[in-house]
């Protein structure tokens, strides 16, 4: 599995499509859709409070998946309790995925920086 993170609009999806040679029809927005590229993990995590078993299941079916997630932890602590919990959940989920990933890449201004793997 490859984990690709970065800020909004940094070119993560473009990089994932180039890397995998897949097209937009192979991109999904939730692990239940079960496609090779899982985009916007952070949005799915808004409605999934216990994400790890579902992601485990997805990765068992798709060990070579590419997972994309916006970095959302680099701002002022949100006023709303649920927003704070969501932000924390995105961060912790990414830590867990990064530990398991073969590759972790951060895309910044369209430029990929490999944090783990080849």
């Amino acid at each position: 599995m490859t984990l690709i993170i970065g800020g909004v609009g940094q070119g993560k999806l473009r990089y994932a499509l180039e890397l995998s040679g897949l097209d937009a029809s192979q991109v999904c927005d939730s692990p239940e859709e079960n496609k090779p590229i899982l985009n916007h993990l952070e949005t799915w995590l808004k409605r999934s409070e216990h994400p790890l078993p579902i992601l485990e299941d997805f990765l068992t079916k798709r060990p070579d998946a590419v997972i994309l997630c916006d970095e959302v932890g680099c701002g002022v602590v949100p006023m709303d309790r649920e927003d704070r919990a969501w932000r924390e959940r995105v961060g912790r989920t990414c830590c867990t995925l990064a530990e398991r990933a073969d590759r972790v890449v951060r895309v910044y201004c369209g430029i990929p920086m490999v944090l783990k793997g080849e």
Binding site: E71, V72, G73, C74, G75, V77, R87, E88, R89, V90, G91, R92, C94, C95
Partner: peptide, 8 residues
């Protein structure tokens, strides 16, 4: 340093 939940 790092963001919230980054593992810092």
């Amino acid at each position: 340093t790092g963001g919230s939940g980054s593992g810092k």
